[in-house]
Amino acid sequence: MTREENVQKQLAGRFPEVSATIRIARERRIFVDVPEKRFIEVLDYVREELGFPILCLIIGLDEGERFGIIYVLSSSDGNIVTLKRHVPRESPVIQSVYDRLPNSEIYERELADLFGITVTGLPEGPRYPLPDDWPAGQYPLRKDWKPEMLGSKEAAINE
């Protein structure tokens, strides 16, 4: 049995509700959709017990009704598990994983700035990557955001 199938079997055994969504895209790539309720549990399990301690990246996705958030976890032998969770567009709130994975800070700040997802539990710090005087309520990576939505002041800076 390959490493990927092993991961699939263990994960499905521990969390039956995700078993249908595990997809081995190619060698070393495993995609999993995780229900929001059990997300942290699954994350910890994959991280600690399946041996994927490295957080490569957190990706935000605008899927219309809801936001998808993908956590890309990697093992030291080159395998990648991506865990995807969903939050509703009206109340996009997630708990930070900063206490588990200290390098998540910058990716979570990006989620907050570019998607308007509220991340609770982050330490105090500067915003990233938008400027400090960026108008509130403008989240550039949402699909319904257009550059024209910026006021004339911001547009003038770019001329």
Binding site: L114, G125, Y128, L130, P140
Partner: peptide
């Protein structure tokens, strides 16, 4: 020390 980045954000992903 503390750091602040983002001075070169160019909206490339969008």
């Amino acid at each position: 020390t503390s750091s602040r980045l983002g001075y070169n954000h160019r909206g490339m992903e969008k």
